[in-house]
Design a protein around this nucleic acid. Structure first.
Lengths: 237, 237
DNA sequence: GATTATGTGCTACTTAGGTAGTTTTCAGTA
DNA sequence: TACTGAAAACTACCTAAGTAGCACATAATC
């Protein structure tokens, strides 16, 4: 019992940014969290089990999971979301209960909370006011996707790359986070391009002194140059 | 009174496909619908008033509204959604209450139901179980966007064009609906391309005998050829 | 019925970005 | 310490699709 309580406190803390749990009193929080079981997934594992996400729902506690689409014929990939702490899987299934053809892969060792979809639905039935939190989260994802679309249509690869970098700079530390240890291939998939093309742009950024790279590592040296670069790109076209 | 009742019945009927109103008993339906006021917008009007959608919410009863993004520097457009009967504006604002920089334009004379956002929120507070309907709708839009993204990344223009056509063929009548009277420019914006390029692809489809066009009119002559065309495109790449 | 605006069809040109291939670097490990 | 495999860097090439421009058709307005 005591043990469980400390677990709950731990979850409360590590999921402080989780939209679903926002404005939730401790009692309600515990009633929800008691439905979950902690689980650990090893690094670089694909979660391909088709129907898994129809019957189980997951909240990420730590580690990154990329959610991506795969084109069978060309074997190209696009990363739709880079999910992390506080994110859900699978939002789509939760919302409409339909199958969702999408792939998941862990980029780190990932800790999740697992709950049978049914139990979660039952819980929501009893606490329908928390649907609102879910709506807020869905709204955020919708906005992200809308942005993705307009970026792909309007912006060229270098713009998209710089935008990606700027989006992942920690406001306080000014350091690149979340994507700083990805390979060029993974970065390419995040902006809907290919390894070779992204590499070409990265060389440009290295030459203008805004970034520094080593194997699976990308650091921002001069944020100002990046921002300037973005401005120029916007005006040219 | 009598008059209002017949109005409600009319709305009930014309909004039969509206996710928000699904599984709603007549009493609840009336309590919701009584908050709304009917409004008519003329054809080809832009709804640019920035904050309008923060304070008012709309359900489309009839006519089409395109929701689109505009790139100021290149003045290019992408149509994100072609909204019609049963669709909402602005879903994003409703979900998270934040500003949403997006454009709306009526393609027909459009009839909508208008409600002050505040009143709608109050109503939901009293009927939180109907958040679920909203979630379902949001899920559908998320799926549409995810599809949009993977199409743009994976598929070439001709594939995207044919997919667009097939998506808008009425299952029963086999006729093209909703987009059959659009200009090539508008069709281009629906698949993230430009007029000239779309025109090029349309000429191809005309030559292979699958479609017939006249000014602002596109009809499908042979669905089979279109489906075959799509298959070929998929295998080549 | 003259004028204007908008949609359509086509040609010619340009280019960003995808593709393919080779070499080099680097981390893990046998 | 050498071997292995992946990531990164770079070169050369190709093409889909964007761009610009013009002629013509159709519809709308006065």
């Amino acid at each position: 019992m005591k043990n469980k309580d400390t677990d709950y406190q731990r979850y409360r803390k590590s999921l402080s940014n989780c939209h679903l749990l926002e404005n939730m009193d401790d009692l309600t929080f515990n009633s929800l969290i008691s439905l979950f079981k902690e689980q650990t997934w090893p690094k670089n594992t694909c979660l391909v089990d088709e129907n898994r996400f129809l019957c189980k729902f997951y909240i990420i506690i730590s580690g990154r999971v990329k959610m991506y689409q795969l084109d069978e014929t060309s074997s190209k990939e696009v990363t739709l979301f880079l999910l992390h702490k506080g994110d859900f899987m699978d939002l789509f299934c939760l919302l409409d209960g339909l199958e969702h053809k999408v792939y998941y892969e862990s980029l780190d060792e990932v800790k999740v909370l697992e709950v049978p979809m049914e139990n979660l639905h039952d819980w929501f039935q009893k606490h329908p006011e928390y649907y609102k939190n879910l709506l807020f989260y869905a709204g955020k994802k919708l906005r992200r996707m809308e942005n993705y679309i307009s970026d792909i249509i309007f912006a060229n690869i270098s713009t998209r790359l710089v935008k990606l970098l700027l989006r992942n700079v920690n406001k306080d530390s000014k350091n690149l986070e979340l994507i700083n240890d990805l390979s060029h291939k993974e970065i390419a998939y995040l902006i809907g391009s290919t390894r070779a093309v992204v590499n070409r742009q990265i060389q440009k950024l290295k030459k203008n002194g805004s970034i520094h790279t080593s194997r699976e590592n990308l650091q921002i040296i001069d944020l100002g140059i990046l921002i300037e670069f973005l401005k120029k790109e916007n005006n040219h076209e």
